[in-house]
Amino acid sequence: MKASVMLEKKKEYATILAFDVKVTPEARELADELGVKVFIADIIYHLFDQFKAYIDNLKEEKKKEAADEAVFPCVLRIVPQCIFNKKDPIVLGVDVLEGIARVGTPICIPQRDFIDIGRIASIENNFKPVDSAKKGLKVAVKIVGSNSEEQQKMFGRHFDVEDELVSHISRRSIDILKANYRDDLSIDDWKLVVKLKNLFKIQ
């Protein structure tokens, strides 16, 4: 009963680790009814391994649930000789100046009143599709409009080669990164989050 209280606060701690003890049928039934996870082992290391695997699995589930709203910080510079398609979709060669460019990242142009040009639909590194590209890499990105109803932005009209492409973060996306992706970002990536937070005037 005490363990079940954690279901409302932190699901992963609604658990009982039963080390070298018997669990009665009544206790098992009540645990199932309440949604409390019971781990049983007569070797302490096995108990620890079971619990760790459970926590890791829950973390992965949370990551998947939050993936659509998680915006990793990145600053991209357009490579002038690599303008492959100007609109529908925009396809450009870019240098990743800072952070991590990831598929799904919404992109805007701070120098142009923070105009949104769409989301990264795909990334290619040496003609091979990748999910992300870190600082220092030169990659091709395909950017598609975030909303089919809005006018698709066009290279040469809405933005140009000297404009930097920046991931459009928000208060919510920062909170999601902190909760689910803390270890996926380096110290420099977190510094970039702070820098972009100030740029976007996020409280």
Rank of each mutant, 00 (worst) to 15 (best):
I43V: 15
V130P: 01
A121Q: 13
I143A: 03
K135Y: 00
A53Q: 13
Q151W: 07
F39K: 05
K22P: 01
K86R: 12
E124L: 15
T24I: 02
V21S: 08
V96F: 07
K52S: 11
I117Y: 01
I109V: 15
E33D: 13
I143L: 03
Q151N: 11
F51S: 07
I115W: 01
D56M: 10
K37Q: 15
I117H: 04
V38C: 05
I83L: 05
Q50E: 14
P25D: 09
V94Y: 02
I55Q: 12
Q111M: 09
V36E: 04
L97I: 12
S148M: 11
I143W: 02
V144A: 12
C82S: 12
K153F: 05
L47M: 10
K59L: 09
L47Y: 10
G104Y: 02
E149T: 15
I117E: 03
Q151H: 11
P89A: 01
K142L: 03
D131I: 03
A70R: 02
I16D: 02
K37D: 08
V94E: 05
V96R: 01
A133G: 08
F84V: 08
Y54C: 03
R102W: 00
V75Q: 12
G136K: 06
I78G: 01
K134C: 06
A67Q: 13
K142T: 11
I107G: 02
G104E: 02
E69T: 01
V103D: 00
F19W: 13
E29D: 11
K138L: 01
D113Y: 07
I100S: 00
D68W: 01
N85F: 00
E98F: 09
D131F: 09
D95E: 13
V75R: 12
D20C: 12
I90G: 06
L137D: 12
F19Y: 15
A133W: 06
S132D: 10
G104V: 01
P129N: 08
L97F: 01
K134D: 07
E60Q: 10
P25Q: 07
L17F: 08
D88T: 10
V79K: 09
